[in-house]
Amino acid sequence: MEAPNHSYLTTSFGIRRLLCCLALLFAFTTTTGCDDQDTGTKKTQEVFFEVTYINNAWGHQFKGFLIDKNGKIQTFDNPTQWIIADPQDGLTMQQFVENLAKTKESSVQVSVGELEQYAAKIGSLGNANFSKPVPVSVDGGITTYTAYQLSADRQRYLPVLLMQTGDLEIHNLNPAAQETAVWLAGLAEKVY
């Protein structure tokens, strides 16, 4: 039996054909990889949303809830050593795990379909366009409505402010952010 002849790889035409095939294969797998990575991020993201109320006017009040990947609402009320997300740097995955350990599950839950509907909007949100801060009250505290984008390459949850109400009101002008903020405000009424 004679050894196969691979001389076509050494010709200029054969090398070009091989490089074209490799380039097409690379282009296809990178495009597919992005889709898989996005799907993987959604599957591995532990927390999608947070609502927080803070008031230091008459003692320290700090409470709120997180919505996890299963639609469970995890509440907190004056937890010790809660790690607040830095607006630019966010939270590491480990920091979120530490925060989740200080929560308790609410009887209110979000259906998987509803969670998927709002979680799908997170990728289109941004921290670019906000209304001007408007002072509304004094000593009433501040409630923030936040979505989290998981940056897989940085291994961090990056906060996106959707809305802030209370003493100083700020609104994210992105329509998806506004819709999501209204939804979270409705959930907050059910939880509290």
Rank of each mutant, 00 (worst) to 15 (best):
T144H: 08
K42D: 11
M93V: 13
T80A: 10
G71S: 04
C20F: 13
V110D: 02
T10C: 05
S124P: 02
L161D: 09
Q81G: 06
Q109P: 01
K132I: 10
F26G: 07
D36W: 06
A101L: 02
N5P: 02
A147V: 12
G40A: 09
D89H: 09
C34E: 12
A23Q: 03
P159N: 08
E116P: 00
Y53L: 02
V182N: 12
R16V: 14
Q61E: 12
G140N: 10
T103W: 00
I142N: 14
N127T: 08
L115Q: 06
V97Y: 05
F28P: 00
K102P: 01
Q164L: 06
N129Q: 13
D68K: 05
F65Q: 01
R156D: 00
W58G: 01
T31K: 06
L158D: 07
T44L: 11
A185Q: 15
M1N: 11
T41C: 09
E189T: 12
T32C: 08
P87C: 00
G40E: 09
K42T: 03
N5I: 07
A119K: 04
N129R: 11
Q117D: 12
E50L: 09
N55W: 00
V182C: 05
D167N: 12
F48H: 09
Q61D: 11
K42W: 01
N70S: 15
N55Q: 03
T10Q: 11
A23P: 01
L161H: 06
E179L: 11
